[in-house]
């Protein structure tokens, strides 16, 4: 791999070398490396682009890395990855996409990830998106995440859009059965004229299911962000949605959290806030010796941490 590719892998998957455990690295639509383990099998789909990841029941403390990198300007793809997570397993899955576009054509990655969690399975899923390159071609990433949870399973979904993505439509859909817990943390930063649209729906279908959605974003320059997280309570459940955005420059942000209860025992809460960096926050950090620009940077990095 060249330095550009290595940097993309480091940005989206914190990979500086071949990862331990199962992995599949996709580069410009082709497999750049794959490893299955005794408990985690990765196979190519035969009917469409993508892979199946099968995790044996009871697998614990193992990880799967499936980063995608695109360096070819004008390249576009739609990839389908399905995760079958066995009962009682506890794994880390790291995905993510990095695009380096040095040309004038649009590079695009649409990833459709479906998770099937069996009873008692626990997954921590980290997905990072990052774009770079001196070209004028757009960098577009449209991730779709579908999560189907059986009884007492748990998923922690951490999505991060670091920088450089010109346009994204993020769609997330979760079905949670009895005793399931869903924790979604979304971190997003846009700048220039970038556009980010995030749609989420979490259906809490089983008693004692829980969902906690936290979205934090920073919209700079003339970028546009839209958030539509929705939690539906169809049982005795608890759901909390919180969207916070720092707005800067001439950015535009629309935050529309929605909670819907179809059961009298559903407890659902939502909060949303959009605001600029407060003057007293800047001044406080300036009294500690930071310049205004440094103070802004620290406030934003803390906010998105």
């Amino acid at each position: 791999m060249n330095d550009i590719e290595k940097n993309l892998l480091a940005q989206v998957a914190d990979l500086h070398e071949i990862p331990i455990g199962a992995y599949n690295i996709r580069r410009d639509g082709e497999a750049a490396g794959r490893n299955s383990t005794a408990n985690i099998e990765i196979t190519s789909k035969t009917d469409k682009p993508g892979i199946d990841i099968r995790i044996k029941p009871g697998t614990k403390n193992e990880s799967v890395h499936i980063p995608v990198i695109i360096t070819q300007s004008g390249y576009g793809e739609t990839v389908y990855n399905d995760f079958f997570v066995g009962a009682g397993s506890d794994v880390l899955i790291v995905a993510g996409c990095g695009i380096h576009n040095s040309g004038c054509d649009t590079s695009q990655h649409d990833g459709i990830h479906a998770f099937y969690l069996e009873e008692g399975a626990r997954v921590r899923y980290v997905e990072k998106h990052y774009g770079e390159g001196e070209g004028t071609g757009e960098r577009i990433m449209n991730p779709t995440t579908l999560i189907y949870m059986q009884k007492n399973s748990y998923i922690e979904l951490e999505t991060v859009q670091i920088r450089g993505v010109d346009s994204t439509l993020r769609q997330t859909y979760v079905e949670a059965a009895e005793g399931c817990e869903v924790v979604i943390t979304e971190r997003l930063m846009t700048h220039g004229k970038q556009i980010a649209d995030s749609e989420m729906e979490v259906d809490l279908n089983g008693d004692d299911s829980r969902a906690r959605i936290t979205s934090r974003s920073v919209a700079q320059d003339e970028s546009v962000q839209v958030f539509r997280p929705r939690v539906v309570g169809n049982a005795k459940c608890f759901g909390h949605v919180q969207c916070d955005t720092i707005i800067m420059g001439k950015a535009k942000v629309s935050s529309v959290p929605e909670i819907a209860a179809n059961n009298v025992e559903a407890q659902l809460v939502h909060e949303a806030a959009i605001g600029r960096i407060a003057g007293d926050q800047l001044l406080k950090l300036m009294t500690l010796g930071l310049s205004k620009e440094e103070a802004e940077e620290r406030i934003i990095s803390g906010f998105l941490k």
Binding site: K284, M286, G289, R298, I299, G302, F303, L304
Partner: peptide, 18 residues
Amino acid sequence: AKLGISYGFQQPPRFKGM
């Protein structure tokens, strides 16, 4: 501040995430 002056606010600001 760099010259060694510091000030503790009467009503300090909050920093979400920090």
